[in-house]
């Protein structure tokens, strides 16, 4: 361990894994991680734990596509919903039988309810617009003109994307970085919260190797420019490189190592991340 630095605590690493550090703390952590194999392993473990916790509490309310998936929630909830529906039906039949005119009131109530929902939806939209406008007048103007042209919709929740690179083909690698940077810029422009992970395995890890990467400076610049971007390298691929070709991979500072790239693809998709293979 480095002597002039205090040892990294588990709390600090947890905060790092959960993306709760400030820019400086994160940069410092990145430095230490890239120098230190032991910390790297601890991060791997923590990520696994936090992923498992998230998996155990599947369908958290903050998941981006929770609305779509919520249909298949828990069986207990479904039973409750069925019971409720049944009860409502019986109640409705009984009420309809006994007091005909009440129907009219119910219809009015339903209409009122609907108006209320419409209203809250409207005010939510307004709040969002207001937030965007306060984010800066020029930005606000840009958004509105672009939105009119392309009919852009921001997702209400955090957008999470995993971009999978497993090729070292120069043109593809460059185009992948272009696409990555384009989407980061786009989300920043429209004010959409997003987390993006580029996971490299196989020949893809060459992009993240200090000595052979065709774009080391670009990677460093992108890391600094976008704190919501993480470059991830697969430990299995690094090990294979060493076993098969006797090459010890030195990674660009800030690159996070994960046990298995493929396992990471799986975990992330379970957690509701979009998957894109470049």
């Amino acid at each position: 361990m480095n002597k002039d630095r205090p040892p990294i605590s588990d709390e600090f690493l947890s905060a790092f894994v959960d993306n709760q550090l400030t820019q400086e703390e994160k940069a410092d952590a990145y430095d230490q991680i890239s120098e230190n194999k032991e910390i790297n392993m601890r991060i791997c473990e923590l990520r696994k734990v936090s992923d498992l916790v998230r998996l155990a509490y599947a369908n958290p309310p903050a998941a981006p596509n929770a609305q779509e998936k919520s249909i298949t929630k828990s069986p207990r909830l479904n039973i409750a919903a069925c019971l409720l529906a049944g009860l409502t039906l019986v109640l409705g039949v009984v009420l309809g039988w006994n007091i005909g005119p009440a129907q009219e009131n119910q219809a009015k109530l339903a209409e009122h309810e609907k108006m209320k929902i419409d209203h809250t939806q409207m005010s939510q939209r307004h709040k969002k617009m207001a937030a965007k406008m306060t984010a800066g007048n020029t930005v606000g103007k840009q958004i509105s003109s672009d939105a009119a042209a392309t009919d852009v919709q921001t997702d209400p929740e955090l957008v999470k994307i995993l971009i999978h690179l497993n090729s070292g083909e120069p043109e593809l690698v460059q185009e992948s970085l272009d696409a990555l940077e384009n989407v980061l810029r786009y989300y920043r422009k429209i004010g959409q919260d997003a987390r993006i992970e580029m996971v490299a395995n196989g020949d893809g890890i060459n992009l993240l190797r200090k000595d052979v990467s065709p774009f080391p400076e670009r990677i460093k610049r992108m890391q600094q420019e976008y704190d919501n971007l993480t470059f991830v390298a697969c430990q299995n691929s690094i090990t294979r490189l060493e076993d098969e070709r006797g090459v010890v991979a030195k990674l660009i500072p800030g690159v996070v190592v994960i046990d298995s790239g493929v396992a990471q693809l799986m975990r992330r998709q379970h957690q509701g991340w979009a998957y894109i293979r470049v």
Binding site: E68, I161, A274
Partner: peptide
């Protein structure tokens, strides 16, 4: 037919329940 970002479109469609095929 033009989408502002190809990657964002792919992510958006997946969030809406589209299956991704490459």
């Amino acid at each position: 037919d033009i989408v502002p970002s190809g990657v964002a479109e792919l992510a958006h469609l997946q969030a809406k329940g589209f299956t991704y095929i490459k």
